[in-house]
Every structure is written in structure tokens, then in C-alpha cells.
Design a protein around this nucleic acid. Structure first.
Lengths: 351, 351
DNA sequence: TTGTAGGCGTTATCAG
DNA sequence: CTGATAACGCCTACAA
């Protein structure tokens, strides 16, 4: 009574036709038909291997392979919420510090078979919240890199889904933050040893948590080393911003400058050199972050390195822990900074 | 008989409770209840404004706002396939040329309310195909930046969903490619005018379409200008690779070098300078791409600029056209390159 | 203009 | 161990 012809072939060609008609790809129903089992069995075989007999398992797997079956992530996400996706929100995609964070996060995510979706807030707090909400809808967790929105909004997001903040401290939310003390300490000691007595700090954007953090760290270090520290403001934390602050720096009579970030340092150095100032003989310059290209300058830039790539990968790890790890909620994580001593800082040559 | 109490408030608090119980957010059903209409009306009001009376429209919008309703992208994507998402596949997230592409693509995408998802292929053709397939499942279209897989695989992907290739020509698939002729022509003429007679080209990876393209362009330009062109191989297209090729360059007796990319140029320049060679007096160096940081070096790097950001945004535009534009299928798009003349190239000073 | 019903592809829960 | 069935949240004919 049983049909001798293999049903596989028949149903398979049938599917091929269907597939050609509509641009769609195979579903568990197609696989089920080819394998000669029930769709729910296919689901089990494919997502919970072990809950099905070995024979059926193989049957299903073969059918799936033959049909090039690919799970439909939306259909899967609908009932389960599992999207295998993290969101990364950055203030400004143009800022190179973000590159390293992205790199680290992407690497860590792809190891665990997670995908990163990217959104930018164009430096605006409201755009940022909107973007975050939008991404939140499709991601299992969120990484906020140097967020501009205020603490309460971040906490509100975090109440919804796992959130990790990079480069800023927010109470009640896991953060990954470079601890500047070691790096700044090394920088200031090195400058003190080189004979500098008055240091300037070129600050970043007024609202920046990191800028405040770094300025505080520098003040502390200077006090400890009995150096004078003055603070200058910048227009924007970019190469151009660095150029623009050059005159202030010269007027300030400091002999060494720490800048909020490497971009400022590079712009400042360019402008100073254009004005005939020799670096580091007449002025030492130290940046922050050790971004890509910081060693392209001449002299190459001395900088306090933040392990941005590590921040990115740690953030992903934290997210994963919050998600699957269950138990202990990870709290804020401080990562070490270190001085990268290159050519732009050194002994003052008084003429 | 009608209840005088406003049902809004009642249902709204009811929803708040439900929301607290399960971690879920408001659905069109919740909105419908609050607005006092049918769920399908909510759907219409929210996604096809105009197909509903002005009064109802407002009712629904208010309710949605009050509940902080957010559409569930998965539920929406399931029946429609509209995910508002593009995939961007890059060979190596570490390569800075990729950053500009990302930047351009991200900007163009976000204008149209599209999100970018990122995947990396770790320079492996098979990983790349896997990644592409995975992303393909959730994205409406794909951008392949300098893909490593072979032409047929790309065409196979393109048969499935809109695909745009950057930095490589694949027949039958829309591409966005910097046309090197103008830029190289300018570079070679400028070197010829400066008295150089023998030029070297430091090639990139053996399989790279772009490397071949650039070498061909350079040969053509040299022939036209009656200059001699020799080709050198590099180990890898990075700063280190550039350092390693320095000795070959010196041995080659050329007086000017074009390198496959800026990274090679920067490494080469560093190594040459360390060996006491003065750039550009004794050796002119010209890179390709004008990546971030190319102007940080001293002398700043002369380079043939590829408008990478534009490539990224054009790719998105193409995708959008393929998707919604209907009609004419966009074919490959050549974007202009230009010489960015900076300090690393110039007249040869024979001593 | 608005309500009704069925389906999109998966997973989870219950029976068998 | 496997089959049936009901969600998941939204969209879209079709009917009222």
C-alpha cells in the first residue's frame, strides 16, 4: 500500500516551484513536507537538538540542507524576543574614538553570533533618545557610547532592557569607563620630571562627563606633583578646535598641554608648529585616547591611552552576562589607562 | 446607559498594570482599547495616514503617544518583509577605508529612516558568504564593501535581494567604484613635471580587484607620460606592510612611489625617514584613498582621494532605488577620484 | 470610513 | 518522541 516512490523528490520539486513563484525562501513547513514529519518536529530538531530521535534529526537536517533552509529571524523573534542583535549608539560617527569601540564590540559580538546595529545621534540628546528607542525595539541590549542624554533617560532605557554605558558613569547602570588616574599620573609625573611647572588642560564639550573626569584627574595629579594647572576651553573637540585654541595656549604661558582628546592635540600641534613653535622643545603636548593615526604625526603624539577596543568588547560581555548570565548584575567596570610616551612631550629647552 | 466615566483612563491604568506584569510594551490592541477603536484602525492610522478620518486619526495618535506605543518591527516585518534595515559587509573592520564608507552609508540611511547592520568577514571568502547570508535574512538589501567572495556568489546573493558592491566591478550587479583614471593621471603628470622618470607601484593583496585596477591605471598613465613603471609586491596592505617594503623600494631605484593604499604609504614613509631618506626631496610618495589621518604625517601625505563617504551614500541610494524606485535598474556607478597634493611628493633634489 | 478574519513563520504547551 | 494548536503583533483583503 505504501507508495514506493520517494516523496522527498516530489515535494522538493514542488517546493522549488513555489519558491520560484514568490521570492520567499523555505520554511519549516517545506522542510517538514520533504522530511515527512510535522513542522513542530522540525522546529524542535533545528532549535533544540536532543529533544528528537536521532533518525528524525538526521531526516530533518538533510531536508533542511537540501532546501537551503534558513530560519526567519522575524518569525523567531516574534514569540521569543531573541534577535541575536545588540544596538550601538554613538554620538558622532565622525569621531575616531568610536572606531575602536566599534571594532572591539563587533569582534566580541560576532564571536557569540550576535550582530551589531548602528545608530548615530548627531550629538543631539533628543535624537539620541529617539534612536535608542528605535534600536531598542529590535535589539536584545544596548551599548551607549559617550551618551549625551541625561542620567534619568539612561536609567529609563536600562529598566527596559540591558544597557551598558561606555565612557561615562551613570548610577544604577553598568558602565565601562577608562580610569584616567594611572595614565594621567604617569603623564604628569613625566612632565614634572622633564622640568615643567605649569600645565594647561584644553577641555572638551561643556556637558561631557569624560572631560570633567579628565580635568579632575589632572588637577589631582598636579596637586600631588605640586604643579600648577590651568584650564582652557575649546570650541569643539576636533582638529579644527585644536587649531583654534592654539593662541589661548600660547597666551596661557604653560609649557605643557594636556588636551581632552587626541584630535584637539593634533590640531593644536599643527597650528603651533605652523607658528614656529617647536614641539616638544618649546611646548609639550599630550592627548587622550590614542586614536588611529595618533602616531602618524611628527613628532608622534604622546597620549594617555584608553583601551577603547577593550571597552567595546567588555560592554558586549556585560550585555551577554546581563542577558544569559542570570545571577550577579555586573556593575561599573573601570579599565586601566596608560601613558603612551612618544615624541610630542619631553624636556623643555629654554633658550 | 452609557458609562459617564472616561474609558480612556480606566483602560490606560489597566494597561499600565499589564505592562508591569510582563516586560512587554504597548501593542496596537492596547492603543485600540484606549482610543476606543478597532486594532486594524490603529494599524491604518499609524502606517497609512489618510485612510482614516481626521478625528479617529487624532484619537489614535493621542492614545499611542500616551502609551508610548512603539511599533514592533518583527511583527511588522513578518507579513510585509519591510525591515528598514540594510546590511553592510566589510572584509576587515580594522581597515580605515571602511570607516568612511560606513560614515557615508550610515548618514544616507538614517536620512531615509533606515538602520545599518554590520558584519565582518575577517578577510575570508567563506566567512563572508555566511555573514552575508545571515544578514540578508534580516535586511532589505546588502552593501558589499571590497568583497572577497567570487563574482558568482555575489550574483547569487543579488538574485535574492538588492545588492550593491563597492570598490569592485561585478558584471550584472550594480557597483559603486572610484574611477582612478583622473586621479592617477593627475598624480603621474605632477610627478613627471617634477622631473621623475621611474615610478614604482607597491601592490596590495594578490586577489584585490582594486589593486589590479590601480596598477593598470598607473601603467596607462605612465605610458602616456613616457615614464617607466615597475611593480613591487607587499606582504599586507598595512602600515607594517609599508615598512617592510621600504628596502625593496630603495633597491628598485625609482624616485617616486605610488602605493596601493595610504596605510602602505604611511608605513613606507616612516621607514624611509627612519633610514635617513628625505621625503619628498629624495623620494616622492603618493598613497590612495585619503583616509582619516593621511594629513597627520609630516610631510602630509599626497594621495589620490577616493570619495569613500560618497561611495557609501551612493550605495545606499542605489539600494533605495532598487527597492522603491521600481523602474530602471541602476548600473555601475563610477565616482571621480582626484589628486590631493600635499607635502610627500614633489621635485627631486639630486645632490 | 471602520470592523472582521486570516495569514506571516516560529515556538511553546498539551495531548497522544 | 511526535503531532496538533494556540499564541506572538501586525497587515490587508474583504465585508459591512
Amino acid at each position: 500500500m505504501t507508495e514506493p516512490r520517494t516523496p522527498d523528490v516530489a515535494t522538493e520539486t514542488e517546493w522549488a516551484e513555489k519558491s520560484r513563484r514568490r521570492g520567499t525562501s523555505a520554511t519549516i513547513y517545506d522542510v517538514a513536507k520533504v522530511a515527512g514529519v510535522h513542522p513542530s518536529t522540525v522546529s524542535r530538531a533545528l532549535s533544540n537538538p536532543g529533544r528528537v530521535s536521532a533518525k528524525t534529526q538526521k531526516l530533518v537536517e538533510d531536508a533542511a540542507a537540501r532546501l537551503h533552509y534558513q530560519i526567519n529571524p522575524f518569525a523567531r523573534a516574534l514569540p521569543t524576543g531573541k534577535t541575536s542583535t545588540f544596538g550601538l549608539i554613538v554620538a558622532d560617527i565622525t569621531n575616531p574614538t568610536f572606531f575602536d569601540i566599534l571594532r572591539g564590540a563587533q569582534a566580541a559580538a560576532s564571536v557569540r553570533d550576535y550582530t551589531l546595529v548602528l545608530a548615530e545621534s548627531a550629538e543631539s540628546a533628543v535624537t539620541e533618545v529617539t534612536a535608542a528607542r528605535r534600536v531598542m525595539a529590535t535589539a536584545e541590549g544596548l551599548i551607549l557610547a559617550s551618551p549625551r542624554m541625561d542620567d534619568d533617560e539612561i536609567r529609563a532605557l536600562a529598566a527596559d532592557k540591558p544597557v551598558v554605558v561606555i565612557n561615562r558613569e551613570v548610577k544604577g547602570v553598568p558602565c565601562v569607563i577608562p580610569d584616567v588616574r594611572k595614565g594621567i599620573g604617569e603623564a604628569v609625573r613625566s612632565l614634572a620630571a622633564a622640568g615643567h611647572e605649569k600645565l594647561a588642560f584644553v577641555a572638551g564639550p561643556p556637558g561631557s562627563w569624560m572631560s570633567a573626569h579628565r580635568w579632575a584627574g589632572m588637577q589631582a595629579a598636579c596637586e600631588w606633583s605640586r604643579l600648577q594647572a590651568v584650564r582652557l576651553e575649546s570650541i569643539k573637540p576636533t582638529v579644527d578646535g585644536g587649531r583654534l585654541v592654539a593662541s589661548d595656549v600660547l597666551a596661557g604661558r604653560a609649557t605643557a598641554v594636556l588636551t581632552y582628546n587626541d584630535l584637539l592635540a593634533i590640531g593644536l600641534m599643527q597650528q603651533l608648529q605652523a607658528a614656529g613653535v617647536v614641539v616638544p622643545d618649546q611646548m609639550s603636548i599630550v592627548g587622550f585616547d590614542d586614536i588611529f593615526g595618533a602616531n602618524f604625526t611628527s613628532p608622534p603624539l604622546t597620549t594617555v591611552r584608553s583601551p577603547l577596543g577593550e571597552c567595546g568588547s567588555r560592554a558586549v560581555t556585560q550585555l551577554l552576562a546581563l542577558l544569559h548570565g542570570g545571577g550577579a548584575s555586573p556593575q561599573t567596570l573601570w579599565v586601566e589607562t596608560e601613558l603612551v610616551l612618544r615624541g610630542s612631550s619631553g624636556r623643555l629647552l629654554t633658550s
